[in-house]
């Protein structure tokens, strides 16, 4: 994993509602960052180099609602997409990352077939 991606343990006291396991202390998780990392570009694209550059280095850092990746390392090893308000730490939505990715690709396939 990229050094810029390298997750650090978090010591913030927070509770994350895990979709499978219920409320879990944030100390059980490792934080990665912007959930945009789910959208890995296509390597065969003609502009792949630029797309990978943006994918890797341009992240959102909003003051407000933010979709971000958390890894339940000291738990069931699920990667989660957590929607967190960075101003209040209020967590409004949590999903398994794999569910999000599969839903995304189904939506995309649907559009291609339409």
């Amino acid at each position: 994993m990229n050094a810029a991606l390298a997750p650090n343990p978090t010591y913030t006291d927070m509770l994350i509602p895990h979709p499978l396991l219920g409320l879990r202390d944030s100390a059980e998780f490792v934080y990665l960052g912007d959930a945009k990392l789910l959208l890995r570009p296509n390597a065969d694209s003609e502009t792949a180099a630029d797309e990978f550059h943006d994918y890797l280095h341009l992240r959102d850092n909003p003051a407000g609602l933010h979709k971000e990746l958390w890894f339940h390392e000291y738990g069931d090893r699920s990667w989660l997409v957590v929607t967190r308000d960075t101003l209040t730490h209020e967590i409004s939505d949590v999903q398994l990352a794999r569910d999000v990715v599969i839903a995304n690709s189904e939506q995309q396939n649907g559009q291609e077939h339409a």
């Binding site: 890894f71 990667w79 794999r98 690709s105």
Partner: peptide
């Protein structure tokens, strides 16, 4: 530890299929 975390990322977040 990092590699294992990375593999889980690849497996769940990039290629869940």
């Amino acid at each position: 530890v990092n590699v294992f975390r990375h593999l889980e990322f690849c497996r769940q977040c990039l290629w869940p299929e």
